[in-house]
Amino acid sequence: MDNQSKTTTRSKSSFRYCQYEEDRDSPGDARNVLIVVATLIAAVAFQAGVNPPGGVWQDDKDGHKAGRAIYATEKEAYYVFLISNTLALSSSVLVIMYLTYRFPFHLEVLVATASMIVTYGSAVFAVTPKESVRFRYILIAAVVPFAMRLLIRVFVKFRSKS
């Protein structure tokens, strides 16, 4: 067996080893990994929304307004950033809410995540020039993970009755 084949075989086996296996991994361990990953994604997405890449303009010069995202001068790229970042935050918040459901302090987690989403939204609205983005698409991106999960639940319930 040549070195290329050994490397490929070894990487495939380590990839398989890192995958979830019901016989080896407990559901609690899987939940813990998911909550850590979702929390990290939420933290990064929140920070990116509150402090956009490139920062904000510091003064009102050359047609720019202080406090507005510098990145917003690249309208299409900034728009893609906002939609993707909002989708990442919203999806990770959904995972956090699901994984902490019926746990102690779930209500507090719910209040904290809802507050975080409101803070994120207000920060994005504050740093985004009004002419740069259509905010309704950002709101739609925020709702998509919740709507998809609801539709999946309705579909599964409907299928089980059939």
Score class of each variant (00 low, 15 high):
52 P>C: 07
60 D>Q: 11
89 L>K: 11
87 L>K: 12
74 E>T: 09
87 L>G: 14
121 G>W: 09
128 T>P: 00
135 F>W: 13
110 L>Q: 10
108 E>H: 08
89 L>M: 14
126 A>C: 00
29 D>S: 04
46 F>N: 04
33 V>A: 02
52 P>N: 06
134 R>Q: 05
53 P>D: 03
107 L>Y: 10
100 T>L: 14
31 R>P: 01
33 V>Q: 02
38 A>E: 03
90 S>L: 09
50 V>C: 07
135 F>D: 01
41 I>G: 01
109 V>H: 06
58 Q>E: 15
49 G>P: 09
126 A>P: 00
41 I>M: 06
56 V>M: 08
35 I>K: 04
56 V>P: 01
139 L>F: 09
37 V>Q: 02
140 I>W: 05
31 R>M: 07
101 Y>D: 02
120 Y>W: 15
113 T>P: 00
69 A>M: 05
111 V>S: 01
64 H>Y: 11
87 L>N: 08
52 P>H: 09
135 F>L: 05
63 G>R: 13
106 H>C: 01
64 H>R: 14
103 F>C: 08
118 V>Q: 06
90 S>H: 06
106 H>L: 00
121 G>L: 09
58 Q>W: 06
97 M>A: 12
120 Y>V: 09
122 S>V: 12
72 A>R: 05
30 A>Y: 07
51 N>H: 14
77 A>V: 14
126 A>E: 05
55 G>T: 07
68 R>Q: 12
65 K>H: 01
95 V>Y: 02
122 S>W: 11
114 A>L: 11
38 A>K: 05
96 I>M: 13
59 D>T: 15
55 G>Q: 08
48 A>F: 15
107 L>I: 11
52 P>G: 06
31 R>A: 10
58 Q>L: 15
134 R>C: 00
129 P>Q: 06
94 L>M: 14
60 D>R: 13
99 L>D: 01
51 N>C: 02
126 A>M: 08
